[in-house]
Amino acid sequence: MDEEYINSFVEAFYTILPSFGIEELKITNLEVKENMFSNEEVTAVVGLTGSVRGNIAYSFSEDSAKKFASAMMMGMLIEEVDEDARSAISELSNLITGRGCKILSNNEVFTDFTTPTFIIGKNIYFLISTVKTLAINVETTAGAMQVNIGLEL
């Protein structure tokens, strides 16, 4: 997978997350995998079409999903990952993907993306790409987020 694609999305984390008060971003792990195993409870998947096709999956533990949703909703207390919380995380994944695509378009790579679909549950084995999946773990003040990027290039 081309460095340019990964850097665009990493740059998007650093732009979007702090604008909601989610600070101190640290990439703790970065690895290439054949498939994706998620032990996290909440995953939002956004699809990309256009010059680049693929999926980006944003995974959170239940606890960090609540904290990320709360940050998106001006600090409102979130007690469970309900429709409102999912809507907030959906918006966050849209913003990050949108920003990543915008950065890519500066380099003449034009993409469009789809509405996020949520998958909620534990011990889930995913296959999000027929090629390889890049997993990025990001630690923040709102908890951890795992981003899996599977692009067909």
Binding site: T49, S87, T117, F118, I120, G121, I124, F126
Partner: peptide, 21 residues
């Protein structure tokens, strides 16, 4: 309409949510 590559998963009691659609 253009297709995104599929994702597939298996797990215990997974819920799929697509709110408001």
């Amino acid at each position: 309409l253009r297709l995104v590559p599929p994702i597939v998963f298996t797990g215990d009691n997974a819920l799929i949510c697509l709110d408001k659609i």
